[in-house]
Design a protein around this nucleic acid. Structure first.
Length: 410
DNA sequence: AGTCCACAGGAAGGGCAGGCGA
DNA sequence: TCGCCTGCCCTTCCTGTGGACT
């Protein structure tokens, strides 16, 4: 007992004595909403002007917000809604808002779950399955119309939901709006897909009557400004140098001006510096943070996959190794057939019941969507049409994934 | 120009688990 | 308890595809 106390003391002693380099860590989180949002004045003004009719109790138009990852779409939307709510509250009127991330599995990836989630966010108790969808529609309608107000529904990653369940729910939401007597609904759809609107049904497009706002990627200078503001609140003075901020900004600017990535880099670099007992962040901490972020993203994604997907990925890794080692293998391309044959062997060795080739084809597509592999449809002439498959992860995360999968199937 | 291959990918439906209401 | 509803994962069946080969 005494020994264990001594060990605990030895382990944690240096951390107790060590000076904290963070001031307020949540400031460095990408979900933190700051008092001021830099380099997005035009977009905020545009959004504000579209939503302004809500101040007088009128129905604002629906909005579609476009832009690549980390361009500030979500944060600006939340920022403007919270300000609008504050002003409306002062005037004694009511404005409700619901934020839903449609990409979250088991949250809003089906029409049923979307309406269940909307009702839950509005304080209703709804089971995860079991009720007919039209019952949910009716409950939602009654809830919205229970008191005179404006309801703003923010659907983040709306393209993911439309891709999965179609655009009927958008049409239904606009139809509900026409039947409401005391309230109205405004939809704000946020998407990375610039061609999202083009793929909507004509009937949906005309019923939406929406306005569009485009968020352009940040450049390195703008990212540096954003990081500087966040670092001011997030770290103690003297912890972050201009060089470090510049490097973070430059790396994130290479990744399509992704502010989320820039913040993650800075935060993780801070954590690594703190763990190493350093009083400030050095450039090598940024490099290490970049590696760690890549590694964590990939391994966590793989870990979260169902076992059949993992088996397919393991088969791809094995096939790739075989292709790399065999000199006689002149065409080093991995095809769906090769992967499926290897997958059958993996299943046999692991005592798993194999799925059909049709299903494996879908799983390969899903792994491609996750960015773990790339699978391009090619035609080999009279030798058929197939997919050219290759691994899309770097060496270090790949080694970690391989170890992980070997423990499971090896 | 027609044939052929090895799939891709859409559609339909089966089986299962789970919730609700009578 | 039972019937009805849902989502999810999967199979089966089918048509379509694009470029090498004949």
């Amino acid at each position: 007992m005494l020994v264990s106390t001594n060990v605990s003391y030895n382990i944690f002693a240096k951390y107790i004595e060590q000076e904290d380099i963070f001031n307020d860590k949540k400031t460095l989180s990408s979900s933190f909403i700051p008092q001021k949002i830099s380099h997005r004045d035009a977009e905020l003004n545009q959004m504000g002007s579209i939503l302004a009719p809500a101040l007088k109790g009128y129905h604002p138009n629906n909005i579609f917000v476009y832009g690549t990852c980390g361009t500030g779409k979500t944060i600006c939307t939340k920022f403007i809604i919270s300000h609008l709510q504050e002003i409306i509250k002062q005037s004694g009127k009511s404005l409700r808002s619901v934020y839903i991330n449609c990409k979250m599995k088991k949250v809003a990836d089906t029409e049923y779950r979307l309406f269940a989630q909307l009702l839950k966010e509005m304080g209703e108790c709804v089971p995860d399955t079991g009720l007919p969808t039209d019952v949910l529609y009716r409950r939602f309608f009654e809830r919205v119309d229970s008191k005179p107000s404006t309801l703003i529904i923010i659907l983040d990653e709306i393209d993911a939901l439309v891709k999965k369940v179609g655009d009927d729910f958008l049409y239904n939401l606009t139809r509900i709006n026409q039947e409401l007597k005391r309230s109205h609904i405004t939809i704000i759809g946020i998407t990375n897909d610039l061609s999202f609107r083009d793929n909507l049904d004509l009937r949906v497009k005309s019923s939406l009557s929406e306005e569009e706002i485009l968020f352009k990627p940040y450049n390195a200078v703008q990212l540096r400004d954003i990081l500087m503001e966040r670092a001011d609140g997030g770290f103690r003075p003297g912890v972050v140098s201009d060089t470090v901020l510049g490097k973070c900004a430059a790396l994130a600017a290479q990744e399509h001006g992704d502010a989320r990535r820039a913040l993650d880099l800075l935060r993780v670099a801070g954590e690594l510096a703190e763990r190493a007992g350093e009083p400030s962040i050095a450039e090598n901490h940024i490099d290490m943070a970049q590696q760690k972020l890549d590694m964590d993203r990939v391994t966590e994604t793989v870990r979260g996959q169902p076992s059949q997907s993992q088996a397919v990925l393991y088969s791809i890794i094995k096939c790739q190794e075989k292709a790399d080692n065999q000199k006689a293998w002149t065409d080093k391309r991995l095809l769906t057939g090769d992967v499926f044959d290897n997958y059958l062997a993996v299943c046999k060795a692991g005592g798993m019941k194999p799925l059909t080739q049709r299903r494996i084809s879908d799983l390969i597509g899903e792994l491609d969507m996750l960015g773990i592999i790339t699978a391009k449809v090619i035609s080999k002439g009279r030798y058929g049409r197939t997919r050219d498959i290759s691994l899309a992860v770097k060496e270090e995360p790949l080694a970690k994934i391989k170890t992980l999968l070997q423990e499971r199937f090896g």
